[in-house]
């Protein structure tokens, strides 16, 4: 069989672009899990609401970047409210309770979006429509911009966690909740802030990804499943691992969709997940535990 190099290269670019978006979704998810053992089932819905907020602000102001910023802020606030009302009372209970509560939240948010915005998919106009030639394709610059922006946001998060004063609070709370509290860190508010940051990142990826697909009320479901796969493959609560896993899995799916239909490509990533769980249950991109 002849190897279609041009298709493979195009799919590599495609895979990297979706990989960066997925990394943005998954890093929020893994951050939330790492700090408070919450498996956020509603993460896909935050992604979806972000995209809808983007649609709303874009149609009123006409400015894509303003829409991005406002959507992120609104969804981050919503995330904080969700955390305070539903997750804070569950602190210290079995993490499974948080799956249940966030599953309930996702039902509510999804049906709210269906009611508010209707079943017809909305479209976000991309901020610029320039293209460049990639073999026989006219490849939109916007996709490259998404990947770069996502990378920038993730780098920003990393730097904040590494050097920022509040970033250090967050890392301290992840390491030892009780000790952090004893050192005077307001742990409950750190939890709320982290949930808001994760929600904001999900919203950002929703707005950025909106122009590539239609915005509808069920778009979050696919993403939350993929993000779960990524987070488990990368090692729960491990930021670097999640990013590596997001790119790895998106590339795999992109290559797989050369031969099978894109909807079947998720089977490939599921197989990766199962193999990871069988042989490296702590995650594919972390050093082997001693």
């Amino acid at each position: 069989m002849e190897i279609p190099w041009d298709i493979i290269l195009i799919q590599t670019v495609n895979g990297l672009v979706t990989g960066m978006i997925l990394a943005l979704v998954a890093s929020g998810l893994t951050l939330i899990f790492g700090i408070m053992d919450v498996v956020n089932f509603a993460h896909g819905e935050l992604f979806m609401l972000g995209a809808y907020m983007g649609v709303v602000v874009l149609t009123t102001t006409g400015n894509f970047w303003l829409a991005l910023v406002i959507a992120v802020l609104i969804v981050a606030l919503l995330g904080a409210a969700m955390q305070i009302t539903t997750l804070r009372p569950l602190l210290g209970r079995d993490p499974l309770n948080t799956i249940l509560a966030t599953f309930g939240l996702s039902l509510v948010l999804q049906n709210y979006a269906l009611w508010q915005f209707g079943p017809v998919a909305r479209k976000i106009q991309e901020p610029f429509t320039g293209q460049f030639t990639l073999f026989y394709l006219q490849y939109p610059w916007y996709r490259i911009v998404i990947a770069v922006l996502s990378a920038a946001i993730i780098t920003g998060l990393y730097l904040f966690l590494k050097y920022g004063r509040y970033g250090i609070w967050i890392r301290a709370t992840t390491q030892d909740r009780v000790m952090a509290q004893a050192m005077g860190i307001p742990v409950p508010w750190v939890h709320t802030a982290v949930f808001a940051i994760g929600a904001g990142m999900a919203a950002a990826s929703g707005v950025l990804f909106g122009p590539l697909v239609g915005v509808n009320h069920a778009m979050g479901l696919d993403w939350v499943l993929k993000a779960f796969i990524v987070v488990v493959v990368g090692g729960m609560g491990n930021l670097g691992g999640s990013i590596a896993a997001a790119i790895f899995i998106s590339l795999l799916e992109a290559y797989a969709s050369i031969w099978v239909s894109p909807s079947q490509a998720i089977i490939v990533s599921s197989i990766v997940l199962i193999l990871t769980l069988l042989f490296r249950p702590t995650g594919l991109f972390v050093p082997t535990p001693k």
Partner: peptide
Amino acid sequence: YFSTRLRDIYFAITTLIFSQIFYVIIFT
């Protein structure tokens, strides 16, 4: 066979992913 090696949320997520694999197979 695969999911019982895992515990807690990992079990929950694995069973979820498995059901999704069967969904995709049946759907396509």
